[in-house]
C-alpha cells in the first residue's frame, strides 16, 4: 500500500519531441487513479514511466515515500496489466502467475498458496494447467490480472486492459476490476481513452491532452465543472455543446458574461419547449437536422436557425417523442447550468 506522487515529470525523446510536459499528480493510498485522454496525449508514456519501462527526463516519481527514478521495474514493487496481456505463450496459466514469484526466490509452498488464492478470487482455478492460447480473451484478461495480484505489489498499473475485449465483456470486467481493487485496497493507476470507463472506475480522474494535465478531480467534479473546453468536450457522451459567443445573438441573452468567448451546455441540460426561457436563462432557436433514438432517451441534433455556419447543438430528450426533421424548436437552459470559458479555453466562474 502506498502513495504515488509525480512531481513535475517530463519526458523528452532523443529527437526533441516532448511527450510529457511537466505533470504533477498525487495518488493517495488505495486510490484508483484513471489517466484519460485522446490517443497520443502521453498517458501510456506516463504510466510506463511509473512502471520504469521508460526513463524519466526530469522530475520525480515517488512510490511509497521512495523516489524510484533510477530503480529497475522489478524493484519498484509494482505490477502491470498490459493491453495485449503479454502472457508468456509457452507457460501454463499457473506458471505465468508463478514466474515473477519464482524469480524473487519465494519458497514453493508460498507460491502455490498465492497462485491458488489469486485463481480463486478471479475464478480461474479450472484453467491453471492450460496455455494462454487455449483461453478466451476474457480469461486471458483474468490471468493477466492474476499475475499482477499474486505479487501483492504496492501499486497496480493498468494500460488499457479492456480495449481488446468485446463491448459486453468490457463492461463486466470493468465492474470486476473496480470490485477487486476495492477489496484489495491497492493503489492503482489505470490508463484508458474510454471516458465512460474513466468515469466509472476513477476515484481521481486525470484528464490529459498533448502531454499536459487539463484537469484533476473526482469524476463528477470533472463532469460538472470542466476546467477547460477540452475537458468539456472530452468527458461526457454525447459531448458538451460548445458555442462561440463571438458575434452571436446569445451575447445579448446572457447579458453580463465577463470575458467569456465560449459557452458550454450539456445536452441533458437543454430542454425543448414551446414557451420561452423565463428566469433569465438561455433560449436557442433550432432547426432539427437529425434525431437519434436509443430507447430510454433520444438525441436531437439541430442548428441555430439564425446562424448558418454555427456548430450543431445536441439536445437530450427523455423517451422517444422527438420533433420531426426540419421542425423549428426552442431549446432552453437555466442560467445555473451554463459553463463559460475564456479566450484561453479556461473555465470562468460565473
Amino acid at each position: 500500500m502506498a502513495n504515488v506522487t509525480l512531481r513535475n515529470v517530463r519526458k523528452t525523446y532523443p529527437g526533441g519531441f516532448e511527450a510529457i510536459k511537466g505533470i504533477d499528480v498525487a495518488v493517495g493510498d488505495g486510490q484508483f487513479c484513471v489517466l484519460v485522454g485522446p490517443s497520443g496525449c502521453g498517458k501510456s508514456t506516463l504510466l510506463r514511466m511509473v512502471a520504469g519501462l521508460e526513463t524519466i527526463s526530469s522530475g520525480e516519481i515517488e512510490i511509497g515515500e521512495r523516489v524510484v527514478n533510477t530503480i529497475e521495474p522489478a524493484d519498484r514493487d509494482i505490477a502491470m496489466v498490459f493491453q495485449n496481456y503479454a502472457l508468456y505463450p509457452h507457460m501454463t496459466v499457473y506458471n505465468n502467475m508463478a514466474y515473477g514469484l519464482r524469480n524473487r526466490g519465494m519458497p514453493k509452498p508460498e507460491i502455490e498458496q498465492r497462485v491458488r488464492e489469486a485463481a480463486r478470487i478471479l475464478e480461474i482455478e479450472a484453467l491453471l494447467d492450460r496455455k494462454p492460447r487455449q483461453l478466451s480473451g476474457g480469461q486471458r484478461q483474468r490471468v493477466a490480472m492474476g499475475r499482477a495480484i499474486v505479487r501483492q505489489p504496492k501499486v497496480f498499473l493498468f494500460d488499457e486492459p479492456l480495449s481488446n475485449l468485446d463491448a459486453k465483456l468490457r463492461i463486466a470486467m470493468r465492474v470486476e476490476i473496480r470490485k477487486l481493487q476495492r477489496r484489495l485496497a491497492t493503489t492503482s493507476i489505470y490508463v484508458t481513452h474510454d471516458q465512460l470507463e474513466a468515469m466509472t472506475l476513477a476515484d481521481i480522474l486525470v484528464v490529459m491532452n498533448g502531454g499536459v494535465v487539463e484537469q484533476i478531480g473526482s469524476p463528477l467534479e470533472v463532469y460538472h465543472r470542466p476546467a477547460t473546453t477540452f475537458v468539456a468536450s472530452f468527458i461526457g457522451a454525447p459531448p458538451m455543446n460548445l458555442i462561440a459567443l463571438e458575434g452571436s445573438e446569445l451575447r445579448r441573452q446572457l447579458g453580463d458574461h465577463g470575458d467569456a468567448t465560449t459557452l458550454g451546455i450539456r445536452p441533458e441540460d437543454l430542454t425543448l419547449t414551446s414557451g420561452d426561457a423565463g428566469d433569465g436563462g438561455l433560449a436557442l432557436k433550432l432547426r432539427v437536422d437529425a434525431v437519434e433514438r436509443v430507447g430510454p432517451e433520444s438525441f436531437v441534433y439541430g442548428r441555430p436557425g439564425d446562424h448558418q455556419g454555427e456548430a450543431e447543438i445536441i439536445v437530450r430528450v427523455a423517451g422517444e417523442h422527438t420533433p420531426a426533421l426540419g421542425e423549428h424548436v426552442l431549446a432552453v437552459a437555466s442560467r445555473a447550468k451554463l459553463h463559460l470559458f475564456g479566450r484561453d479555453g479556461r473555465r470562468l466562474e460565473p
Binding site: A51, G52, L53, E72, P73, A74, I78, A79, M80, F82, Q83, N84, A86, L87, Y88, P89, H90, Y99, G100, N103, R104, R147
Partner: peptide, 28 residues
C-alpha cells in the same frame, strides 16, 4: 511483442533469464 520483455522485466527476470525462460522456448 515488446510487452513480453517488459512483463519479464517487471517479473524480475534479467537479460539471461528472459533469454532462457522466454525467448528460447518461443524459438523452438
Amino acid at each position: 511483442p515488446d510487452e513480453l520483455l517488459e512483463a519479464s522485466r517487471i517479473d524480475g527476470a534479467g537479460p539471461l533469464r528472459f533469454f532462457w525462460d522466454t525467448l528460447l522456448p518461443l524459438s523452438r
